[in-house]
Nucleic acid binder design. Structure first.
Length: 549
RNA sequence: GCCCUCGUAGCUCAGUGGAUAGAGCAUCGGUCUCCUAAACCGUGUGCGCAGGUUCGAUUCCUGCCGGGGGCACCA
């Protein structure tokens, strides 16, 4: 039973004792400021009106009743502010947290079963197979993957999905560009693809190759390689061409007809999407008889509903208008629209020095994801993308990124982990052994530095749950930075192997850092950043850090 | 014009329907005979503007201003 559960039960009982029959929703939280106590409840505030009592007075009643029979570890119950009930706890509650973290290990701590094994289909990246991934795709690759990791920790089964738009006009243009680059390296057709890779790929292409097929394979291979390098793998790639070939698109078209949600106009077939919340009706079959991208896309989403209890699309703001359209199509098919969720994130703005670098395959001049990975590595790349909310425009200055890579926040986190691992090696070298946890006297951990570390650890399960529900992995990044800070402060002030440290305290601190390391490892795992055994000192040539992701 | 999104410290960003809004960077100044100083400590007049809902709004709603994105029988 967690501390929160105990307090919640206590407050609930106190409310009943105070004669509040219909208790409103109330929270039990860690207050922002430590001076207000270890835990706090707003129950008196939210229940006051239905109880017909003044908040402060109800709070006093709750406090009095809880003082009479306090939950474990509770030392003081106070009423403060407009009617908060605050709890001060003995450090023993944090020692309990330590034990909990260590026994759960990084695999089990901050894990929940809210997903109860339900399946979530998460589609992300889905870059067109017409070129390499650029730095803009990277944001969705890393974000999508981190969201999946959060969902997995929350007890969901996750399907990482990638949709390949390997048919249609863009592919025609891509093939034409390759063809032309092969025959004529000079001019390039307007509207075609102009990135440097076109010429390079054209040069690689065997003379007898089917340009279209070869180009698609080349692009997909390139993208997969880059994704692998950043630790992102997919469970399911769905080819639009194959989907059409096996009749899924025709089936959906038939279904749309049967439901009477399409109509002919000027030779084209339109979906009545405006009847389902979209701004206007959308063309699904062009007047030339060709389907738009939209039709197979509807078929694809229909399939995703078949394998996921929840279907999530991760897309950039440049595609946000697609959301009401897809939502309308799914509603038109009679699917449960609440199970569909689109996460729209802002674009990535790249700068080199002061100048902004334009993105887009057709304009050329893009920053390749593979180049970024080569220059700063996967860990920095991932953390940079996970530093802030996807609601903000992410600005990456490439020059600053490489120049300041040694000051990157990722090292702040990894160094904390490496320090603890280093301690283990030092301890072994000095013949210091850690006694079993059950034999350690944790009650000696009572300094503020020590308790602060445990307090942040206690928060991790809540943060993880919240980050998962909000699909906001940057909350984990923020927690990790805060946790690393409390750890570094502790480390600075609390020697462990020093001969001046009492043996009991040393043992307790050895377990404290193991708990701190475990929590950090959980966060790094969710972020997909490696938790290294050591970091190369900054002055020496970068040694390869042993890593366990 | 319409739609989406953002506006918090010099800069980059966290944050919350509540009780005194936080980090990092930058600046300046301190810490290694001591478990890696990629660390630690000190240094701060800020929620774009105006209404509304609420016991309480930086947070929710509306309008305005400003930045970004989108409004194809492209994907």
């Amino acid at each position: 039973m967690t501390m929160r559960d105990r307090l919640r039960a206590g407050v609930g009982a106190a409310l009943r004792e105070a004669g509040v029959s219909e208790a409103a929703e109330f929270s039990v939280e860690r207050p922002r400021r430590a001076s207000l106590g270890d835990w706090s409840s707003n129950a008196a505030l939210t229940c006051a009106s239905s109880a017909g009592t003044a908040p402060r007075r109800l709070a006093e009643q709750i406090a009095a009743s809880m003082r009479a029979d306090p939950p474990a570890h509770v030392e003081a119950v106070e009423v403060a502010g407009p009617g908060f009930v605050n709890f001060r706890l003995a450090p023993s509650w944090l020692h309990e947290v330590l034990t909990e973290v260590v026994s759960a290990t990084s695999d089990g701590y901050a894990r929940s079963d809210v997903g109860a094994g339900r399946t979530v289909s998460v589609e992300f990246v889905s870059a067109n197979p017409t070129g390499p991934l650029h730095a803009g795709h990277g944001r969705w690759a890393v974000y999508g993957d981190a969201v999946c990791r959060l969902l997995e920790r929350g007890g969901y089964r996750v399907l990482r999905e990638f949709y390949v738009n390997d048919r249609g006009g863009q592919i025609d243009r891509f093939a034409a560009s390759l063809e032309q680059a092969r025959s004529d390296s000079d001019s390039s057709e307007s509207g075609g693809y102009r990135g440097d890779y076109i010429a390079e790929w054209a040069a690689e292409m065997p003379a007898d190759a089917d340009v279209r097929q070869w180009g698609l394979r080349r692009a997909r291979h390139d993208q997969t390689e880059t994704l692998d390098a950043m630790g992102v793998t997919f469970d399911l790639y769905t080819s639009e061409a194959e989907l059409v070939a096996r009749g899924a698109m025709d089936d959906i078209l038939e279904e749309l007809h049967r439901r009477g949600v399409v109509y002919k106009l000027d030779g084209a077939l339109l979906l009545r999407s405006s009847d389902f919340g979209d701004a206007e009706d959308r063309v699904v079959v062009k007047s030339n008889g060709e389907p738009t991208y939209f039709l197979p896309d509807i078929a694809y989403h229909h399939e995703k509903f078949g394998r996921g209890d929840t279907v999530i699309d991760v897309l950039g703001a440049d595609h946000h208008s697609y959301v009401p359209r897809m939502r309308a199509a799914l509603a038109a098919l009679g699917l449960d629209i609440d199970a569909y969720e689109a996460r729209v994130g802002q674009v990535v703005n790249l700068r080199r020095g002061g100048e902004s670098v334009r993105m887009g395959k057709r304009s050329g001049g893009m920053v390749l994801m593979s180049d970024l990975l080569d220059s700063v590595g996967a860990d920095i790349t991932r953390l940079v993308y996970l530093l802030q909310s996807i609601d903000t425009t992410l600005s990456i200055d490439l020059d600053a990124l490489s120049a300041q890579s040694s000051e990157n926040p990722v090292y702040y986190l990894q160094y904390a982990h490496a320090r603890i691992r280093s301690l283990g090696r030092q301890a072994a070298a000095r013949g210091v052994e850690r006694v079993p946890l059950a034999e350690a006297d944790l009650s000696v951990l009572c300094g503020e530095r020590e308790l602060d570390v445990l307090r942040t650890l206690a928060d991790l399960p809540d943060i993880t749950l919240s980050a998962m529900q909000a699909r906001a992995p940057h909350q984990i990044t923020a927690w990790a930075r805060n946790h690393a800070a409390t750890f570094h402060r502790f480390w600075h002030d609390c020697p462990i192997l020093s001969s001046e440290t009492d043996e009991n305290l040393r043992q307790a601190r050895l377990w404290l850092v193991e708990a701190a390391r475990t929590g950090l490892a959980v966060a790094l795992d969710i972020l997909g950043v490696s938790a290294p055994e050591r970091l190369a000192p900054v002055d020496e040539p970068a040694a390869e850090a042993a890593s366990s992701r």
